[in-house]
Write a protein that binds this DNA or RNA. Structure first.
Lengths: 192, 192
DNA sequence: TGTACATCAGTGAACGCGCGTTCACTGATGTAC
DNA sequence: TGTACATCAGTGAACGCGCGTTCACTGATGTAC
């Protein structure tokens, strides 16, 4: 049942969107292609009309989901100028809402170390995404020279990713909240 | 071929040790019981003479590997008193050597978000392990009151975990080193 | 513009394979007398 | 201390199942005239 070019393009996007959510919620290895295609409203066989392999899809998912999240972060930061914008972006990243919604949250935190085991192109996409985060943070740090700002932004980004991950791992609700809060304070104090 | 109690206990430990290494290197879901038993020098069937399920093993692996890593961190920190000890522990955690040897490295960084998807008991074990890390760091921070020290130690621990994870994800070697270094500076500056 | 034909998106069964788990079996270890 | 028997660590085949991938097929879409 051949579909029109427009519909084909839409289907492809639907698969990427479904995979983005499933990979982030359940992990890459733990998400099967059948689950994923079902989530996109299709049957398993059709997958290969759009992608050569699961690894190929992962690469596209990584790029797409990080780009989207970077845009969100940029938008959050852009609401206010300079330091205040940075605070807003950090607060939104380290929020309970973000912690509880991995499906549309930061892919670096949600897929985490699984990306370290992915192929070169996927890791390159993750690397580029990480640098985009860093740039957003650094651009809102106007009290420091650019190279210093970048160094701090790198550290701030890793703190955010680590804190979000651990807030999800930890079972104790109070400790989980504390992790998010302490990490946010830690970052903001260091930019003062 | 029944084994003596002593040998049985040793075998059990061997399975836990093999699983600790395999889970950290390849991920929990991606490591099969057959691989794991082979790494321990046994065949697949014998597994269930020692553990009820893979989830049961994971719980034991989590506890054991975090305890071991906490001891290492404590030992690194204890070489020097106060702040200098903390610096040593952070430097050793954020080293190239640690980055390149996940098999015997920090389980929180190596299993990362997979632990967030594990059962309650495993998450509780991970939580306890995280708090042990925090305590080691906080105990070497003598210039601050205890509650302040704990907050900073929590943030420092998440930074370390996030930085190690991202240093493994990132493909560019220079950036990877920079992540480790910038995170270490970030932490040390905040404790000054 | 209309018709004939090639293309190809999507289906659903099937491929070989490895997964976690179970089981009958073996034979050394541990226990009871 | 020696003997008879129960226990159980470890083996390796088998269980049902879901994995990623392939394939023959369908029929609407796109193309060529």
């Amino acid at each position: 049942v051949r579909k029109s070019r427009k519909e084909t393009a839409k289907t492809r996007k639907r698969i990427v969107a479904a995979a983005s959510a499933e990979f982030r919620e359940h992990g890459i290895v733990a998400t099967g292609l059948a689950d994923l295609m079902k989530a996109a409203g299709l049957t398993r066989g059709g997958f290969y009309k759009h992608f050569r392999s699961k690894a190929d899809l992962l690469r596209e998912v990584t790029t797409a989901s990080i780009d989207l999240k970077t845009a969100t972060m940029k938008a959050n930061a852009a609401k206010r100028p300079g330091q205040k914008g940075l605070n807003a972006a950090v607060a939104s990243y380290l929020s309970l809402d973000h912690r509880d919604r991995p499906r549309d949250g930061c892919p670096l935190a949600a897929m985490g170390v699984e990306l370290a085991r992915a192929d070169g192109k996927t890791r390159a996409a993750a690397t580029e995404g990480f640098l985009n985060y860093v740039e957003v943070l650094a651009s809102h740090c106007d009290s420091l020279p650019p190279d210093q700002a970048k160094k701090r932004a790198i550290a701030a980004a890793t703190t955010m990713i680590g804190a979000l991950t651990m807030a999800r791992v930890v079972k104790d609700a109070k400790l989980s909240e504390s992790i998010l809060k302490d990490a946010a304070d830690f970052i903001l104090r260091s930019f003062e």
